[in-house]
Design a protein around this nucleic acid. Structure first.
Lengths: 320, 320
DNA sequence: AAAATCATTGAAATGCGTTTCATAAAGGTG
DNA sequence: CACCTTTATGAAACGCATTTCAATGATTTT
């Protein structure tokens, strides 16, 4: 017969307890199928060992999250958290405002936040971080970010795409995406840089696409084809679905892909490889992303203030 | 100045507290940014208002969860849980065995489970349910299931696919999938039924595909094309990726889709609509699925034993 | 006006680990 | 052998909200 504290210590592998005692406790606990009450643990302890993960493209949008990339990222984060024995509290899209975030933290529902998809919420996140809330954000870091951002090297991604297009002999680019999203703006800037550095006279058009769906990209592509006199010979789309929509629209318009025009997407979602033709795209290391997001947050919880980080980003050349 | 219990009652909207008092408490709480400690709440209360969601295709497989359908389902569940003010604890793939499940329940980490993807774990789930654990499973119900299963009407899905293929004038079917997964077996059975009821002499071939990935489906398709003398004129694949892989492989082999052969997939993942040609497939109402999964579990937690249910399932005819 | 009922509120108990602090036993030193 | 460390363990306090249960004052009934 041993006392409560001894049991507690034995179960938490404390070195203060005698080896024989520990083994005995573990044996009995096992025999009776005993499991410590996580809630009591969380109540008493300083940490809850729970991380809240918010998955959203901006609270203003009601439509379904659809970019498979975000889900793969979630899978990566889930895995990384599991490795560190942290519970993952998935935040429903309907409570993704500052108040709910604060609430979750205040109520000790979680120790910190991983925010997947910065969207247009930089100010909100900044304000939130200002309060000392432990957050790590997937996205692109504002210059003066007061929170830790982990993301693809979007500028490099844009450069890689641009250089590839230059190499293909393309001289008239079209960028598709909403550059007011910082990540997308960075990609646009990288593309521009590659164009400028090429030494060629390269024109860069823009379609500001304010939706993430394939459908609206397809519509936008057709509208564009209706009004343009000289079609571009290269497209860099902010994501793969959009790239696919443009491939389809151009093909329907009798423009041969990749003969007449080269198209590059972003994220390398699974279907990018199976599209016809397979989509050239920019891939990020999602497993690394998950690991880094979690690692950064852990360091923040330990009182450090880790710098933002960029994830491995590379060009995958396929049929377009 | 009011006492603890009064505050507690005021915050939980108890009718036992005076209206003026409640408003005062709420005002003060608001002013000080007070939030109840969820852990104390969970420790004391009978329910934790947390639901664990397990997302996995079978514990034996290490590879990444990739079917976008499962993620959409997760989104649906997340939404439905949010509507009911339930927290969502996402279980990492690395603890998806009975023991971990039991552990989560015992440790009061969650009130119940939503298992997305039954896989080959029917026995495990049955055993788990036998202990009285509140679980709802996405999949297809075994005849003698002792747990609540919510899923697509897979048999109907198979019938719809089969009837469609018959209508297209097809008489030689190929089913692709591993029928040892109950859901897939049901689809196969539905297809067979449609073939039998058609009144035509219809041959049904099988490829037992033991992987869920596009790549292995593509390989399997090519291997099949190498050995077959008379190719089939219809394919029903257990999911959309596989359907796409077969479309690609047949096309590469010079068989025209949909002229020479009709192909039907399952799930209606987003890219199915954008493939070329767009893939005919069986769609399920994912929002309904999320809502029903959650509703069933809530009823179980209220002591009822709701019956299994089938989700709206329909054929989406596209280019194949 | 006395009795009974209702509406509010608070004191104390409860749920269950963890931590602090004190104690006891065992081992080591001079 | 007296004295100082270690080592191991337990008693009590703590974290915080909820739930009895009792008490108070207010209101209504007889």
């Amino acid at each position: 017969m041993v006392s409560k504290p001894t049991v507690s210590r034995a179960l938490s592998n404390s070195p203060l307890v005698n080896k024989a005692t520990r083994e005995h406790v573990l044996a009995v606990a096992n025999e009776h199928g005993y499991a410590v009450n996580r809630n009591a643990q969380k109540l008493r302890g300083k940490r809850t060992n729970t991380i809240a993960v918010s998955l959203d493209f901006g609270s203003h949008r009601k439509n379904h999250i659809s970019d498979p990339f975000m889900f793969e990222l979630l899978a990566g984060v889930s895995e990384a958290l599991g490795d560190r024995n942290q519970d993952l509290l998935l935040c429903a899209p309907n409570h993704n405002d500052t108040l709910s975030f604060q609430q979750i933290l205040m109520s000790r529902g979680a120790d910190g936040f991983i925010v997947l998809g910065q969207g247009h919420r930089e100010d909100m996140l900044s304000e939130f971080a200002e309060t000392g809330a432990p957050i790590v954000v997937w996205g692109a870091a504002p210059e003066d970010a007061n929170y830790c951002v982990v993301g693809s090297d979007n500028y490099l991604g844009g450069q890689l795409a641009g250089r590839h297009l230059v190499e293909q002999g393309r001289r008239h680019f079209l960028f598709v995406g909403d550059p007011s999203f910082r990540e997308i703006g960075m990609r646009r800037a990288g593309l521009q840089n590659a164009a400028d550095e090429s030494g060629f006279e390269i024109e860069v058009d823009d379609i500001e696409l304010h939706s993430f769906s394939y459908e609206s990209a397809f519509v936008a592509a057709n509208r564009y084809l209706d009004v343009i006199e000289t079609p571009p010979d290269a497209v860099f789309a902010f994501n793969d679905s959009t790239a696919m929509a443009f491939i389809a629209a151009f093909r329907d318009a009798g423009i041969s892909v990749p003969h007449d025009i080269s198209i590059v997407g972003y994220n390398d979602i699974p279907s990018a490889a199976y599209f016809c033709p397979p989509v050239t795209t920019i891939r990020q290391d999602i497993h690394q992303a998950g690991r880094v997001l979690v690692a950064k947050l852990m360091r923040i919880l330990d009182g450090e203030t880790p710098a933002s980080a960029l994830i491995k980003t590379k060009l995958i050349v396929r049929g377009t």
